[in-house]
Design a protein around this nucleic acid. Structure first.
Lengths: 245, 245
DNA sequence: CCAGGGGGCAGAACAGTGTTCAGCAGAAGC
DNA sequence: GCTTCTGCTGAACACTGTTCTGCCCCCTGG
């Protein structure tokens, strides 16, 4: 869009450089600014073209300058992951509404991931036990244990839910990329193509696939996400012995 | 281990080359041999060092030779994914034992992924609707529908289970890589380190994490996988209205 | 007000990467 | 025997993450 001032950046002539240097406040490089730039590049170029050089270019800075603030690309990814989730305030656990709270938790996580293109690919490779994110994990565990889940189930449920959210968003990013590479215009067009592929299958060999193809591709991602969420929450609920019965 | 004949491969002198060419049968390059070599490199070097040049080197061949048989690195990954799962024969669906069948399905998938180092990272990026794998998907859907799951749930269950298997194996590979990079000797040592980290947390701020830390890290991966599996299967079962009641 | 450190950045370099392309050796066919 | 054609080689292009040396500028001490 507005890549005009960052693309063919002719270096400023020497007699201007000192003026420019003193004119602009020479905003110092910080981890925060680097992470900002990384998100900008990610959203514009996608995961595959997110490189240290691109980030440096976005900031108008040499590549090597980044390494004074960031240990490396992996470290940058970790910072992006933290940026995405450290402002996440989970609600006070309410045992009466735990199912809806768990679902809201998952919805929020997916929404955050989808805010930035290909973010799930970065998130997937991160380990959710960074010190900065422990309060969130703690809240989640409080939610599960408060609901009355047995400890082994509560412990597994966290992993499970994170995996589901990440994996689902990852798959969404995957399809989105495939659509982009196929030069198919809209999502509806893409869905039509896929559905056509399935409907052309020999019915005697793939009866169930044909029966389900509408379910798999006519529903929106949101609907499919909700179904998956419901499966998990129902599974969790089955471990809670009813108090009054 | 036995990298002696592939490491510093001195090129054969010219007077030997024609003899070598006629002596060995000059086994032709095929997609199968390329995939074999890719698995060899993957197991020995890991995902990050799996490059086209390494695969070519493993075969004693120039890099560009690969591109006559394989469209690119992504295509090679797809072939590896297919190789892993196309010999997979799912059992005839038995509605009486569907829960155990679903679990066996998941166990087999995870076991296959763990056969090769970092394989989950490759598998994750693949889309399970390759033509060669449709019979497996069909069988899986037959399993779900035969069990009596409503169609939307059956459709979501496949995605869900694949995501769980891939995501779980991915996380396992992640921890394994982290262990390798930390130069921690054994897994037990690693677990001890992590458990020490959690046990050092302030108890008043992270009571639930502390209570669950033993669950999360003393259990083996197999046990945690089984718990996750049980959550999903129970969730699915909750959609089946009991026939006799 | 000026000299001297020191931190932060630039530039170049290293060792890789995926992918493409012109060219050549050898086997297959006539 | 000659030609065609396939399948491989070698080199090249445009990148990548990371490191190292050196320089410039700002802040400090005098």
């Amino acid at each position: 869009m507005t890549g005009q001032d960052s693309d063919d950046a002719v270096p400023a002539p020497p007699w201007e450089r000192s003026r420019r240097r003193s004119a602009q406040v020479r905003v110092p490089l910080t981890r925060e600014r680097i992470v900002d730039a990384a998100f900008t590049v990610l959203d514009r170029e996608g995961y595959d073209r997110l490189s240290m050089r691109q980030v440096a270019g976005e900031l108008g800075v040499a590549v090597s300058a980044l390494y004074a603030h960031v240990a490396g690309k992996n470290d940058l990814f970790q910072l992006m992951y933290m940026r995405l989730f450290d402002s996440w305030v989970l609600p006070e656990p309410d045992p009466e509404r735990w199912q809806e709270q768990v679902k809201d938790f998952a919805r929020f996580g997916r929404a955050r991931l989808l805010e930035h293109r290909d973010m799930a690919r970065i998130s997937m490779a991160q380990i959710p036990f960074l010190p900065e994110l422990l309060p969130q994990v703690e809240r989640m565990m409080a939610l599960f244990r408060g609901a009355g889940l047995p400890d082994p189930v509560a412990a597994a449920a966290g992993d499970m839910l994170s995996t589901f959210i990440d994996g689902f968003a990852y798959a969404e990013a995957m399809w989105e990329e495939r659509r982009r590479n196929t030069d198919v215009g809209s999502w509806d067009e893409m869905r039509e193509t896929i559905k056509g592929y399935f409907d052309a299958l020999p019915p005697e060999r793939f009866p169930h696939l044909l029966a389900l193809s509408s379910m798999m591709f006519e529903e929106t991602n949101d609907e499919r996400f909700e179904v998956g969420l419901d499966i998990i929450v129902r599974g969790l609920a089955s471990y809670i012995e009813p108090k009054d019965a």
